[in-house]
């Protein structure tokens, strides 16, 4: 690992100031992706700004149909929170399936969203529910936030402070985890309310995306059978030693069907 200076930020202002002062600084929250990246020498920041201990970035609250979760809230806290379990059970379930227990004890929601790994779990929930990503400067809806492989709408000196999740209707998440890493080979988050149905697919493509044809089919009939005739376009999907494009397209369909079955009880 290359050398760097570690800076412990006590407040959001301290973090922002340090970030502005050093163009090659990086934010460290749980570090579950960043530390392995540094070990592999895939990044060489001059400074690591630890925002994991900032109290203002932590916590879970439910007000007026909005579930607000601080960016530095760890996966284990989301998975075990009675508030999340009641408000959006699929989100608590998703958090309980990330990585492994040790990773869930450290990794944070803000870190996962900011990194936007194409096989991460949280982006699918955020896109499906169209959550609002709150930063130190503005609010970004999920529709505008995710911009492909490890890319988001965040500016280099912007910090996610919280995520607001709309609590409406029903939702479900199903993934086929890679047997070693736990990352989604394909995962589907399906959300359904009076406004319509949104299906977000993770793991299969270069970034999380909505499967519009499935949304239309489910809008007519909220039943896994409605997806039977559909085929997810494989051309733009990921292909690697773990699976071909076609394999992933089929897997994404199977996961969507399972999520729909879970959501609709049939």
């Amino acid at each position: 690992m290359h050398a760097f200076s570690y800076v412990k930020a006590r407040t959001l202002k301290e973090a922002t100031d340090t970030l502005l002062a050093h163009s090659e600084a990086k934010l460290l929250a749980g570090g579950m992706t960043l530390i392995p990246t540094l070990k592999a020498r895939l990044a060489q920041p001059t400074h690591l700004i630890d925002i994991g201990g900032i109290e203002a970035l932590k916590g879970i609250s439910l007000k007026a149909g909005q579930l607000t979760i601080g960016a530095a809230t760890r996966h284990v806290e989301v998975a075990n929170s009675p508030v999340v379990k009641r408000a959006i059970p699929a989100l608590a379930y998703l958090a309980s399936q990330i990585g492994d227990p040790q990773v869930r004890n450290r990794g944070t929601m803000g870190g996962s969203l900011a990194n936007n790994d194409p096989a991460a779990d949280y982006p699918s929930a955020a896109l499906s529910l169209n959550a609002t990503i709150v930063t130190n400067r503005r609010e970004i809806v999920a529709d505008d936030f995710f911009q492909g492989l490890f890319t988001t709408a965040l500016d280099s000196d912007e910090i996610i402070t919280a995520v607001r999740w709309p609590v409406v209707g029903k939702s479900a998440y199903e993934k086929f985890p890679h047997p070693a890493s736990g990352y989604a080979m394909a995962g589907a988050f399906v959300a359904h309310n009076t406004k319509g149905t949104r299906v977000a697919i993770t793991g299969a493509g270069p970034g999380v995306f909505r499967w519009m044809e499935a949304e239309q089919a489910l809008g007519k009939k909220m039943n896994a059978k409605a997806l039977e005739a559909l085929q997810l376009e494989a051309a733009d999907l990921n292909e690697d030693m773990h699976g071909t494009k076609e394999y992933r397209a089929n897997l994404a369909k199977v996961m969507t069907k399972r999520a729909v079955a879970k959501l609709s009880g049939k």
Partner: peptide
Amino acid sequence: MNGEAIKSCTVFALQAN
């Protein structure tokens, strides 16, 4: 770390201050 299982190869010593 503070009662929770973590992977100590993926935490900086300074984070454990």
